[in-house]
């Protein structure tokens, strides 16, 4: 493993991630004042998902690591979404 190259992120990159996370947190607070009905949860989940993607991609180095890690991460997210989708076969049609 010692032969593998390790990417070292710059401080600029860390600060950009921090800035994006803080901005999206402010957005997620701001949207609570909007009345979007059944889309409330969807919007909140989209913002939270975007934040998680930023953390995974830059802060946790998925962008710079071996592609296999990105493939497994995406596969797990797809699995999770499928489980949610099937769960809503019950809740949407009850």
């Amino acid at each position: 493993m010692s032969e593998e190259k390790h990417h070292i992120s710059s401080y600029t990159s860390h600060f950009l991630v921090l800035g994006a996370l803080l901005l999206l947190t402010a957005v997620s607070v701001a949207v609570t004042s909007l009345e979007m009905g059944k889309y409330d949860t969807l919007v909140a989940m989209l913002i939270a998902g975007t934040k998680a993607a930023i953390v995974l991609t830059w802060f946790m180095h998925l962008r710079f690591d071996n592609k296999i890690y990105a493939i497994f991460t995406v596969a797990v997210i797809v699995l999770f979404l499928l489980v949610l989708y099937i769960t809503f076969f019950d809740y949407s049609y009850r």
Binding site: F89, Y93, R94
Partner: peptide
């Protein structure tokens, strides 16, 4: 348990 009919079919 009282799940929706569509869920029953899918599962």
């Amino acid at each position: 348990s009282g799940m929706s009919g569509r869920a029953l079919f899918a599962f």
